[in-house]
Design a protein around this nucleic acid. Structure first.
Lengths: 135, 135
DNA sequence: CGGCATCCGCTAGGATACTG
DNA sequence: CAGTATCCTAGCGGATGCCG
């Protein structure tokens, strides 16, 4: 793991554009990922459709405001589909779209990688903090 | 693309932990990715070692403060190595560590995916905005 | 050259209250 | 139940100035 030489060929990161990565669409993705509830919402929805309340309960500690905002943004980007059942009281169900599932798969890859790397990073941080602490 | 049925099996996103994704280390990664200069810095460094000034010029528009902060955090996490040449004036060179290169590869995968998905997302946004605009 | 230190505006996001 | 609306604050990140 992490061989200096044999490691995976690094696909080209640079030619994406100079200004920001707006042109390649990366910014749009990172904006979502930067929001702290997006990944957990995707995780929960990747297990199947959920109603608003179910999601809220699953994502312990989320505020109503952020629940709605997160879902709206995911919906706007086409990752999540919203079905309204106009009953009384109303029932609203959310589920991943094909694109959303594809997105979730990407995130899952990231999760897998971070699992493998977690220990290294924590060790690196500890060592870094120790070095700067003593000085 | 984006078939509902044949699509990649979705690696399990959920069992990462209930609280946040702290336990699987995802949060650490997302924290970096959330910062707007991290990806561009990785991109530039994936082309080879760079001096502070070179990076600053490559990342058009970055402030000194963020250049330093971004590099420090990447260094702390073990993605970037910092070499100081104690000459006068001093020369400081940054380069990716093996872990950093591995990280860059992950990001590159994300870039590739976002390239393919960009059009879909933009279309989805346009349609969403149109719908909410008319109402 | 390669940085810190400081001030400061903006926005992400929590808490709270109200509605169809 | 499934939201909207409002208020409020902590922190990210830009601008500026100073230093070895």
């Amino acid at each position: 793991m992490f061989d200096t030489h044999t490691d995976v060929r690094i696909p080209d990161l640079a030619p994406c554009g100079s200004a920001d990565h707006e042109d390649c669409g990366l910014r749009m993705i990172l904006d979502r990922l930067g929001e702290q509830w997006t990944v957990m919402t995707l995780a929960e929805l990747s297990a199947g459709p959920r109603r608003y309340r179910e999601l809220e309960r699953a994502l312990q500690g989320i505020s109503q405001r952020m629940m709605t905002l997160t879902l709206r943004r995911l919906e706007r980007d086409g990752h999540v589909l919203r079905h309204v059942e106009p009953s009384i009281p109303p029932s609203v169900t959310y589920e991943l779209s094909p694109i959303g599932r594809s997105f979730a798969a990407q995130v899952a890859a990231l999760v897998e990688w971070s699992r493998q790397t977690k220990a290294h990073i924590e060790a690196s941080r500890a060592s870094f903090d120790a070095r700067s602490g003593q000085k």
